[in-house]
Amino acid sequence: MERKHKRLATRRAAGVAGVVFAVLTAAAITLVRTALPGGGDDVTLDAGQRGGLRTALELVPFAGIAFLWFMGALREQGGRAEDRFVATVFLGSGVVFVATLFGAAAAAGTVLGDGTQDSTFGSHFAYALLTTYAMRMAAVFIIATSTIGRRLGALPRPLVAIGYLAGLTLLVAGSGVPWSEMVFPAWALLLSLNILWGRPPAAAPRTAPA
């Protein structure tokens, strides 16, 4: 009974953390895209754009923390039944995504400078990190999560299909499609709502010790 309550609590934690991550990340991406609509080509910002960009940079650390919590709670759901190979890809891609997201935020902070050449380089560097590298890691994370959910029967088939489609979209689209970064928080929100409102999967059987 105690183990069942622990699993339910972890499941709720994953759902809540995923919702927080999705909302904060979507807000940060929207603010950055609004402040730098040219993809970093124009670094001359007015007061409103500067305020929006500062707000986005303040949201990113909390989004990263929520994602790490989300990732840890998701991994706990797999328990001993997880595939070590897929679980390693899941964990590695998630950690690299957060590191790249933080790097993009730090580079974007240079835009708040005096509009020098360094600021222009920083804006392009931030967009490259976010749209090319962070989103590729997000794609791998989505595909790994969907694979784990499919093998354990923890996710409904339509959600697994959506996950594979979202992952492939981020892998192929990259920086070529504006606002494609919103695919990741949208998927995370959908997954989190399924975790919160869906039926909990049956616990995986524990293997007897050899």
Results as ranks from 00 to 15, higher is better:
Phe21Tyr: 08
Ala188Ile: 01
Phe97Trp: 08
Met137Glu: 15
Arg150Gln: 14
Ile65Leu: 08
Pro209Ala: 03
Gly78Asn: 05
Ala9Val: 05
Gln77Lys: 00
Leu152Cys: 05
Pro37Phe: 13
Ala203Val: 04
Ala210Glu: 13
Trp187Ala: 07
Phe121Cys: 11
Leu168Asp: 12
Pro200Ile: 01
Asp41Glu: 13
Arg136Ile: 13
Met71Arg: 06
Val86Ser: 01
Phe97Ser: 03
Leu152Gln: 10
Leu190Asp: 13
Ala173Pro: 07
Pro209Gln: 02
Gly149Met: 00
Thr110Lys: 06
Arg151Asp: 06
Gly48Pro: 06
Ala22Thr: 07
Leu112Pro: 13
Phe121Trp: 15
Pro178Phe: 09
Ser175Gln: 11
Gln117Phe: 14
Gly113Phe: 10
Leu101Ile: 03
Thr55Ser: 13
Tyr133Asp: 15
Thr100Gly: 09
Thr55Phe: 13
Gly78Met: 04
Trp69Leu: 08
Val172His: 09
Thr169Gln: 09
Pro209Val: 00
Asp114Lys: 04
Arg136Met: 14
Val16Ala: 02
Leu171Asp: 14
Leu36Gln: 09
Ala22Ser: 11
Val16His: 02
Arg199Met: 10
Pro201Thr: 02
Arg75Lys: 10
Ala27Cys: 11
Arg7Thr: 03
Ser192Gly: 07
Gly176Asn: 12
Arg11Asp: 05
Gly39Pro: 04
Pro185Ile: 04
Ala208Val: 12
Phe125Thr: 12
Thr169Gly: 15
Gly174Ile: 10
Leu57Phe: 04
Phe62Met: 00
Gln77Asp: 00
Asn194Ala: 06
Trp69Cys: 06
Ala154Ser: 13
Thr131Tyr: 15
Ser180Pro: 09
Asn194Ile: 05
Ile162Gly: 09
Thr25Tyr: 12
Glu181Met: 00
Tyr164Gly: 10
Arg12Leu: 10
Gln49Trp: 14
Leu74Ala: 06
Ala107Trp: 09
Glu2Ser: 04
Phe121Pro: 07
Leu36Cys: 05
Ala56Leu: 02
Thr44Met: 08
Ser119Gln: 12
Phe62Gln: 01
Gly92Cys: 03
Ala144Thr: 06
Phe67Tyr: 04
Ala27Glu: 15
Ala17Phe: 01
Leu170Ile: 11
Ala134Ser: 08
Thr44Trp: 13
Ala14Gly: 05
Ala161Leu: 11
Ser180Arg: 02
Thr169Ala: 13
Tyr127Val: 11
Pro205Lys: 08
Phe102Val: 11
Leu155His: 05
Ala108Met: 06
Leu190Cys: 11
Ser175Phe: 09
Pro61Phe: 02
Gly39Ala: 02
Ala105Asp: 03
Gly51Val: 13
Pro205Phe: 12
Ala188Asp: 01
Pro201Lys: 02
Val32Gly: 08
Leu190Gln: 06
Ala35Gly: 11
Ala203Tyr: 01
Gly167Cys: 05
Phe97Ile: 02
Pro209Arg: 00
Ala134Lys: 04
Leu101Asn: 06
Arg3Gln: 11
Pro158Gln: 13
Ser146Ile: 07
Phe102Ser: 11
Trp179Gly: 03
Arg84Trp: 06
Gly40Leu: 02
Pro61Asp: 01
Ala166Pro: 09
Val16Cys: 00
Thr30Trp: 15
Gly163Ala: 04
Thr100Trp: 13
Tyr133Ala: 14
Ala87Asp: 00
Leu171Met: 09
Thr88Tyr: 03
